[in-house]
Each structure stands twice: as structure tokens, then as C-alpha cells.
């Protein structure tokens, strides 16, 4: 591959994620320098850019949807990115945070903020600044069209590298047995 004249714009975000997929992305180690010959980062936890640029090429989403702000950010990424990639178990099927789906939301908030031992005069936060949690955690493909999925909790650095380099080379991404895992 020869570096393109115009760099590919890549935005990333973590919704109801643990940032572990971003860490696994950084686990490509010094290959990150090679990657930066081909891409530039747009909005990402790794940059200071606050909004996704309207001409973004690739959006990488970690985490499922657990609150209203997650949904806004996800829709914003979908609107501005040509290709959207769901990365990690959470974005793909809700992940371990979706284990809260069988509990009523009010019960969870009550227990965490109100009735837990040691919470003197505890109350459920009610400032409009705070995004309201959704009743259930959802995978991102239930809200927007997703173009590619990289499974894993987190996917290995090699799996992320494989998908990105396949895409940059114009190939359909494919993980073999060794890079394919959900855990």
C-alpha cells in the first residue's frame, strides 16, 4: 500500500463502553505510526475535537446504548461517517451492561443512589444536565445501520488492525479463526 494523498478521517467514541476496545486499538502498538500515514483522527477520546466532521470516512463505535446522550452521539456519527464500525461485544449485542435488562431501571437507581447502606440522605440524581438512562441497554444496530462488526470483549489488536487495513486496502474485512472471538 502506498499512502494516499488525502488521509482517511477516522472518528471514534465510547458509548456504554469501558474504553477497553480503545485500549485494544492502541494495542496495535508501533503500528499506530504506520496507520497515521493513512488516517487522521477526527472526534475521538484521543483528540480534543468536540464534534464529528461532516466528511468523516470511518466511525468506530465502542459500547452499547444505555442513555439518551449515547443515542444522540450514535446518530451524529451515523450522519457524518460514510462507514460505521461496531467494535466489541457491547456495541454488538449490548454486552455485559445489558445484564441489567432484566431489572427494572427504577429498582437499580433506587438501590445505587438511595437505599444502599452508607448513603445518608441519598437521592437519585435529577439534574437536567444528566442524560436519562434508557429502560434497557441496546446494541447499536437496533438504532442505526452498521456497516461492519468486530467481535470480541475486546477484539484483539490484530483483529482491529486486520479490519482497518482490509478496509484501507479496499478489501472486504475478514477475520480467520485465530482472530475471531466473542470473549
Amino acid at each position: 500500500m502506498t499512502p494516499p494523498r488525502k488521509k482517511i478521517k477516522v472518528a471514534t467514541t465510547s458509548l456504554a463502553g469501558c474504553f477497553g476496545c480503545h485500549m485494544s486499538f492502541l494495542d496495535i502498538d508501533e503500528r499506530l505510526f504506520t496507520l497515521l500515514d493513512y488516517i487522521e483522527f477526527d472526534r475521538s477520546p484521543l483528540t480534543d475535537i468536540k464534534e464529528v466532521s461532516p466528511d468523516c470516512d470511518i466511525g468506530i463505535i465502542e459500547g452499547g446504548l444505555c442513555n439518551a446522550e449515547n443515542v444522540h452521539v450514535l446518530r451524529d456519527f451515523r450522519k457524518n461517517c460514510k462507514v460505521l464500525i461496531a467494535i466489541g461485544a457491547c456495541a454488538i449485542n449490548g454486552g455485559l451492561p445489558a445484564q441489567r435488562n432484566h431489572l427494572p431501571l427504577a429498582t437499580i437507581l433506587e438501590e445505587i443512589y438511595h437505599t444502599s447502606p452508607g448513603l445518608a440522605n441519598g437521592m437519585i440524581p435529577n439534574d437536567p444536565e444528566l442524560p436519562l438512562p434508557l429502560n434497557k441497554v441496546h446494541p447499536i444496530h437496533e438504532v442505526v445501520q452498521v456497516d461492519y462488526f468486530i467481535p470480541g470483549c475486546p477484539p484483539s489488536a490484530d483483529a482491529i488492525w486486520k479490519v482497518l487495513t482490509d478496509l484501507l486496502a479496499g478489501r472486504e474485512p475478514e477475520l480467520g479463526h485465530s482472530l475471531m472471538h466473542y470473549d
Binding site: 461485544a89 466473542y182 470473549d183
Partner: peptide
């Protein structure tokens, strides 16, 4: 939720999904 399942890696459903190249549900 394979990430917290004790059978992950030894599960026939999961292994079959790998075999079929299942990238998402």
C-alpha cells in the same frame, strides 16, 4: 454474553458461530 460465560471457548454454539464467520447477531 460470552465475555462472562464459564463455557466460553468450550461452547459448541460459539464455536459453530466462529465456523460460520458470525460477526454480529
Amino acid at each position: 454474553f460470552c465475555p462472562s460465560c464459564e463455557v466460553s471457548g468450550n461452547c459448541q454454539l460459539q464455536a459453530t458461530a466462529y465456523h460460520l464467520g458470525m460477526m454480529s447477531p
